[in-house]
Design a protein around this nucleic acid. Structure first.
Length: 869
RNA sequence: GCGAAAGUGGCGGAAUUGGCAGACGCGCCAGACUUAGGAUCUGGUACCGAAAGGUGUGGGGGUUCGAGUCCCCCCUUUCGCACCA
């Protein structure tokens, strides 16, 4: 029967099901959230903003578990921040241009647009069944003209800023089908369709000058390093590859030619025994003009180039070093020594200056090369002997040490055999010698970067058309802004062979020159899809703007992104390009900060056991170890799937899929549900006066213990959310549930203070569960008698430190570092009292009996260690 | 080869950053309820030992009253880079 305190009038609360039926409540709340526009962000909301973002998915057609993990993390954060009173922007969209749509067109004759839209519709349904709290009113898709118009707009701006340009470069080419291949399509050096050997072909392509921002891309890392994983930043630093060194110009004897080399070790220049240039080096043609060796050397250079063309990215093992002496000699400007000029395959044209000074004594590659071609090896750096001044041993200049040196000595040291520079240490010599080169005009300090310009041309259909026109009279003419977007045609032929499908659509190809009005043809290259993903999260802030990519002021309210979440496979490309794009937008006056993303979280992979083995590998179709999110939702519910994914491992770790693990998550939700159900009449019946129970003083010991656990849990969960330690967070909620279960009271006859303690615990638990399992949390919140949904009537609970405080402490007592006993004391006990109590403990006594106490270490609130002899 | 990160029960993982190792969950064991249970509930579960006690965070050494945590050497795994002058 009803306890009179908790009158059975439920004050209008909806009857709660006795059992947890995920499919029923999930559908109900998904609809209700949509009807209430619960997750739509308004920029005039006065609360502080929080922008949480998950990486834009490619609409392959099916969500995989990696997505589920990604979105579950982001959604937990979004819910948490909302409940903490933030105005949260949590949008989603589609990276919907790209190769697979075109391959589907080739294989199955379906238009890329239809294939893509169908996939989006399906995946959107899956996301909604997961109940991710996206603001769907801001949804965007890269392949729609309203979006790619602005890709084109940015391209025109970059053209004006001289950040976009065209030059020839090599692409993977299938000679059989006469078509350009992507790296994936040419993997292993053979064409994915016909198996022909892939070659390289030089074609004209569009580039963006990322190198212009190389320095900033490194330097600005300091602005984000607090919020980005170090492993990502390291890869970005390596990608940009900033190196300090010097340029030196070597005159070619008997000509007016100079060969410029870059070196990071100018201190070794007296050890240079050759100049080595890349096969593509332009100086070669002039150098060999009158040489009898010309044909032979050019043949060698061609052979190197050809070998490089065949070499594909995934066969990047080191090749044998090959070279040929040109017969010409260069003059070392530091000592006027004559050095033979070689051509070799290990020198790359597109790094540094395309030529190096070969210092075999102090560079491993040069050493290997010199050994092979019996070039002189001369040591000019000696190790610094620790603790004593090392003696510069000068040997006769030109002395060859090929026999003595078994390895290159690549460390810094002290200069020997280096004329006036001998005796200096490397670091000083590098600086002073570079300055000398600058004074004398044959070089100077220099910085180079590994970063290259970003090639954005794709000879494909399914991308944003590059908005330029080629006119026989006016040349290359940008499409005027007012004529954007340059629309993709509705139909094209997809054969997978021959030229880009756009070339076969006359209505697209043929146009008039914006300049002179005469017939002209359009550029048929489309843009790399990394263009779309470089700025999409700005578009979310102002997704329907039709006069600008986004409004400066509106974007400024939301950006930069507070938390970005995605896989670390994007550590370099996407995340470098988007940083680059941000800097361009800054220079265009669209944003006023240097870095678009404050905090980055890289989630780990989701793996599953490969059937018949004990190995866990990333889920994939080919391995047959994939898990379908829809099946999971059907079997266990979205809430349990999400809860498990967040609980099973720290977000950065690999996540091993486990069917029994997700069953555990369902069990937990059921237990919470049952607990809420059991105490439901109590809550509903409590009068407002009793709800203000914080002032009550009549709590039993057990109730105080429960309240302590409640407030400790609130503090812990809140803290862990800031660190995104979601797995320990779920564990804390489980502990709280266990504590409620341990509390020995029945709803039907509990005292008011007991009921208060339980209600406090359950309400906190339900609210804190919302980020993990929002549907169940909403339903239980309602079941607790609340009239409106969580975001309208709940706030994140606040921990009361007084209530969280323990009223006694169990202090471990060690003897010689070994745990021997525990003593129970008041938390504010003095050090001396704690020491006395510990020493008086009977068990401790038995261990120190007969020994001499050497020392007693007392760590307040923590432990006592008695050291005896 | 170079660089980075990581090695804790049968498994995923905790450990307030130098202070009770193994939270929480999975699995397993026992019991209860049940015609039955792959449901639910209760209890147990690092290892050795009957117990007292001992051992234990990849291996070895060190610092410290005290080490999963700090230092040195080694082993293993994962990831990244791969002629970048």
């Amino acid at each position: 029967m009803c306890n009179p305190l908790f009158a059975c009038n439920l004050r209008g609360s909806k009857a709660m099901d006795e059992k947890y039926f995920p499919e029923k409540i999930e559908e109900h709340w998904q609809k209700r959230w949509a009807d209430e526009h619960a997750f739509e962000a308004q920029e005039d909301d006065p609360r502080p903003k929080f922008y949480t973002l998950e990486m834009l998915p490619y609409p392959s057609g099916f969500l995989h578990m990696g997505h589920v993990r990604n979105y579950s993390i982001g959604d937990a954060l979004a819910w948490y921040k909302r409940l903490r009173g933030f105005n949260v922007l949590h949008p989603i969209g589609w990276d919907s241009f790209g190769q697979p749509a075109e391959q589907a067109a080739i294989k199955r004759g379906i238009q890329p647009r239809d294939w893509t839209e169908k996939n989006i519709a399906h995946m959107k349904g899956q996301m909604q069944r997961l109940g991710i709290s996206y603001d769907w009113s801001r949804e965007i898709a890269a392949h729609r003209p309203e979006y790619y118009k602005w890709d084109q707009w940015f391209f025109l701006k970059m053209l004006e800023m001289d950040l976009a340009y065209k030059r020839t470069s090599a692409v993977n080419w299938c000679p059989n089908e006469e078509t350009v291949l992507s790296n994936e399509q040419s993997s292993g050096g053979i064409c994915w369709r016909c198996g022909a050997a892939v070659t390289k072909k030089e074609i004209e392509q569009w580039y963006l000058r990322t190198t212009k921002y190389a320095e900033e891309l490194v330097a600005d890392i300091k602005e984000i390093e607090a919020g980005w994983p170090e492993k990502v930043l390291k890869r970005q630093r390596d990608w940009v590859g900033r190196r300090e060194g010097a340029y030196i110009d070597f005159k070619v004897k008997g000509t007016s030619e100079k060969i410029r080399v870059f070196t990071t070790r100018i201190d070794t220049i007296f050890g240079a025994t050759a100049i080595v240039v890349a096969a593509e080096h332009p100086v070669l043609a002039n150098l060999l003009e009158d040489s009898i060796l010309k044909d032979q050397i050019m043949a060698f250079a061609d052979q190197v180039k050809a070998a490089r063309a065949i070499k594909t990215e995934d066969l990047a093992e080191e090749e044998e070093k090959l070279g040929i002496n040109t017969g010409q000699v260069a003059i070392n400007p530091f000592n006027s020594e004559l050095l033979p000029i070689w051509v070799a395959n290990y020198v790359l044209m597109d790094y540094g200056a395309g030529a190096v000074m070969s210092v075999p004594a102090h560079d491993e590659r040069d050493y290997e090369f010199a050994q092979k071609y019996t070039l002189a090896i001369r040591q000019v750096i000696a190790p610094v002997v620790h603790g004593q001044q090392s003696e510069p041993v000068d040997q006769a200049p030109g002395g060859d040490q090929s026999m003595e040196m078994k390895n290159a000595f690549t460390a810094y040291g002290v200069l020997v055999n280096s004329g006036e520079w001998s005796g200096l240490i490397s670091q000083d010599a590098m600086r002073e010698m570079a300055n000398r080169a600058a004074e004398k005009g044959f070089g100077g300090p220099a910085v180079t970067y590994r970063l290259r310009d970003w090639g954005i041309s794709r000879q494909r259909f399914w991308g944003a058309p590059i908005p330029v026109v080629y006119c026989p009279a006016c040349g290359m003419v940008p499409v005027p802004e007012k004529d954007l977007p340059v629309l993709l045609p509705d139909n094209a032929q997809f054969t997978g062979t021959g030229e880009s499908p756009l070339k076969g659509v006359p209505e697209f190809l043929n146009t008039t020159c914006p300049n002179c009005g005469k017939p002209a043809t359009r550029e048929t290259d489309t843009m790399d899809t990394f263009v779309d993903s470089s700025w999409y999260f700005f578009r979310y802030t102002d997704p329907r703007n039709d006069s600008m990519p986004f409004d400066r002021g509106v974007a400024a309210k939301w950006t930069p992104v507070d938390q970005y979440i995605g896989g670390d496979s994007h550590a370099v490309m996407h995340l470098i390009y988007t940083r680059f794009w941000n800097k361009v937008m800054r220079d265009l006056g669209l944003v006023d900060f240097n870095e678009p993303v404050k905090r980055l979280l890289t989630q780990g992979m989701v793996t599953n056991r490969v059937e018949g083995t004990n190995e866990y590998k990333a889920m994939s179709k080919s391995l047959g170890n994939g898990v379908d999110p829809d099946e999971m939702i059907e079997a266990f519910g979205a809430d349990a799937a999400r809860l498990f994914v967040l609980f099973a491992a720290p977000v950065e770790n690999e996540l091993r899929w486990s069917e029994s693990g997700i069953e555990g998550a369902v069990r937990f939700l059921r237990r919470v549900w049952t607990m809420v159900y059991r105490w439901r009449p109590g809550y509903a019946g409590l009068r407002p006066a009793e709800r203000a129970g914080g002032v009550r003083t009549d709590f039993s010991e057990a109730a105080r213990v429960l309240r302590r656990k409640t407030h400790q849990t609130i503090a812990r969960v809140t803290d862990d959310f800031e660190k995104l330690d979601l797995n320990t967070n779920v564990a804390a909620l489980m502990e709280l549930l266990n504590a409620i279960g341990d509390f020995n009271a029945e709803a039907a006859n509990a005292s008011a203070s007991d009921a208060f303690a339980v209600r406090e615990a359950i309400e906190a638990l339900v609210v804190m569960l919302a980020p993990f399992s929002p549907h169940a949390a909403e339903e239980m919140w309602e079941g607790l008698g609340h009239q409106t949904s969580l975001l309208k009537s709940a706030t994140w609970p606040i921990a009361d430190p007084e209530l969280a405080k323990k009223d006694e402490l169990e202090i471990p007592v060690q003897v010689n570092g070994k745990l021997r006993s525990r003593v129970v004391v008041a938390p504010d006990i003095s050090e001396t009292d704690l020491r006395t109590i510990a020493l008086a403990d009977a068990k401790v006594q038995s261990f120190i009996d007969g020994h001499k106490i050497v020392k007693v270490i007392v760590v307040p609130q923590r432990l006592v260690n008695v050291v005896v002899k």
